[in-house]
Design a protein around this nucleic acid. Structure first.
Length: 506
RNA sequence: GAUUCCGUAGCUCAGCUGGUAGAGCAAUACACUUUUAAUGUAUGGGUCCUGGGUUCGAGUCCCAGCGGGAUCACCA
């Protein structure tokens, strides 16, 4: 593991020894009572009420230090932010013994070490709110030097810790030294909390369904495969949780939802990670029209909770999550951007249309895939503001109820933001005979060479045969939504630990 | 998977047509009682990603590999 230690690491290990030799435990067990956080002090302190700030106790990492002989300034970073502390030798070492200042603080403490301080809040000559230290405690030793970005008065950052590989592999370091990174993840948690809160107010129930599935259903994707030793059967990591949530609707719940880690054994890029988080919710006795309203209000609520406004910036785009969102049928969308009407067209006509538009096609593609190709190529990218694309062709929606007015289409919508799919919802197909036929069509597609067609889940069909109420379901790509709400172009920036190739072992 | 760029001190980076490895911060030592990218003086620190090749000589040129970024393709 550690076959080579740098000069600085050796020095810190030596200092660790020195601490012990002087009776100071570098990793003390006792709790340290924190009474205040850095940013609360800085935003609430007023000079007139400084008596209220006469006893504060903070803990965190020492991130910088400016020693001027018998006095010194340092910066303490806690979970909330940073605050300057002032240490005066005569005050923390009033007696003969000056060890705490001369040795412990000046020599045995390194940048990155955890310290605890007790003292009072004051304002320095240049006006910075700081903590005047009366007592100094050593809390934990840091043996590896952190990268220390510096910022000048104009806010220019020097020596920033920016190498993506290091940032992702050592996210703990990234979080310590890059406060803007921490903010993204705070927003991510706010997003999840806001969405939960929105669902819970209607009494919908958060549930857990299997991650290990013997039939990976509910979506079309290559699964990760594993093996259960005791049962001696193959198992798959879920690619979606849809079919299990619907079983719960069959079981009699009116509304169920789950934040689901899904796993897809496919390519990785800046919008795809092998494991990602979906949210799916199913509500009985509703249809996709109801679900559209529910979705736009939910997202408006979430945007407000995360950013305090429905406005969001994504790259060059200004987007607004204020409900309602426009609704456009897929037929109309394709008509708008290509002049081609997909209505009542045969597979051959669609294939010819694709070719004339310069879209690559092959013989494994059925009507659904051909239409999807046109939409993906010519339309999708144009929807910057949140927009519902509705009424998808039947062939590309095997789990969706046929449209009540036109059997060539289904009652399905996707929500597009900045040209990307963020949500997908249906009036759920609950006719078990129809569902079986749709699965069988998928099987035909599979035989034609479509390796993404769905597997047939016999138990799910059995559940439908017992009867499922009319239901609408919604799936949201949480990572993608998080990217839009935090203005991040890469999924790796909204995942604490994005997938990386294994590090080479030294 | 394709194309392209990158990998040098703990961090951020320089290093020209090949000729003894550089800076700032961080570290070490000393000085300094209100500094804030603290300051001043001095010092130490390198598997130049790995392995081959060309060459008298490779951080530099060539080949292969490893890792990463970007773009494209694939991917409900």
């Amino acid at each position: 593991m550690e076959h080579h230690l740098s000069e600085q690491e050796l020095v810190r290990r030596q200092t660790l020894q020195t601490l012990r030799e002087n009776g100071i435990e570098p990793y003390p067990a006792a709790a340290f009572n924190v009474t205040h956080f850095s940013t609360d002090i800085k935003s609430n302190f007023v000079d007139e009420a400084k008596d209220q700030w006469a006893e504060v106790s903070l803990a965190g990492r020492m991130m910088s230090r400016r020693i001027m002989g018998k006095a010194a300034f340092a910066e303490l970073q806690d979970s909330a932010g940073r605050i300057q502390i002032y240490i005066n030798r005569e005050e923390i070492c009033p007696g003969e013994d000056k060890t705490i200042y001369n040795d412990l603080f000046k020599k045995w403490c390194d940048l990155g070490d955890f310290i605890g301080i007790k003292g009072y809040v004051f304002r320095t000559q240049v006006g910075e709110i700081s903590v005047h230290v009366r007592e100094f405690f050593f809390l934990s030793k840091s043996l590896k030097p952190l990268p220390f970005p510096k910022t000048d008065e104009q806010g220019n950052v020097f020596d920033a810790f920016t190498d993506p590989e290091l940032r992702y592999r050592q996210r703990y370091v990234d979080l310590v030294v890059n406060p803007q990174v921490k903010d993204i993840f705070i927003k991510r948690t706010k997003l999840f909390n806001a969405m939960r809160e929105y669902f819970n107010q209607f009494g919908y129930m958060e549930v857990e369904t299997p991650v290990l599935q013997s039939i990976p259903g509910g979506a079309t994707a290559r699964p990760f495969m594993t093996h259960h030793n005791a049962l001696d059967i193959p198992l798959y990591l879920r690619i979606a949780n849809e079919l299990y949530l619907k079983r719960l609707i069959v079981g009699g719940f009116d509304g169920v939802y789950e934040f689901s880690k899904n796993f897809r054994n496919e390519g990785m890029d800046r919008t795809h990670n092998p494991e990602f988080t979906g949210m799916e919710i199913y509500v009985a006795y509703k249809d996709y029209n109801w679900m559209m309203e529910f979705t736009e209000k939910c997202l408006e609520h979430c945007a407000l909770a995360v950013n305090g406004t429905t406005e969001a910036t994504f790259g060059a785009h200004q987007i607004n999550f204020q409900a309602p969102f426009p609704r456009i049928t897929m037929r109309q969308s394709i008509l708008d951007f290509t002049g081609f009407d997909i209505d009542e067209k045969s597979e051959e006509e669609l294939r010819a249309a694709c070719k004339s538009m310069g879209i690559e096609v092959d013989n494994s593609m059925g009507k659904g895939k051909l239409i999807d190709a046109i939409f993906g190529d010519k339309c999708e990218g144009n929807y910057i503001q949140p927009t519902f694309i509705i009424d998808y062709p039947k062939e590309m929606s095997p789990l969706t109820k046929v449209h009540r007015e036109n059997p060539a289409y289904t009652e399905r919508f996707e929500l597009m933001i900045c040209g990307k799919e963020v949500a997908n919802a249906y009036s759920e197909l609950n006719d078990p005979i129809d569902q079986r036929e749709r699965f069988e069509e998928q099987l035909t597609l599979q035989e034609r060479g479509d390796d993404e067609a769905m597997f047939i889940d016999q138990d799910f069909l059995r559940a439908l045969e017992y009867g499922m109420p009319p239901t609408s379901g919604l799936g949201i790509g949480m990572d993608r939504l998080c990217m839009f709400l935090t203005n991040q172009a890469s999924i790796q920036e909204v995942l604490f630990f994005p997938q990386m190739k294994p590090e080479k072992q030294g």
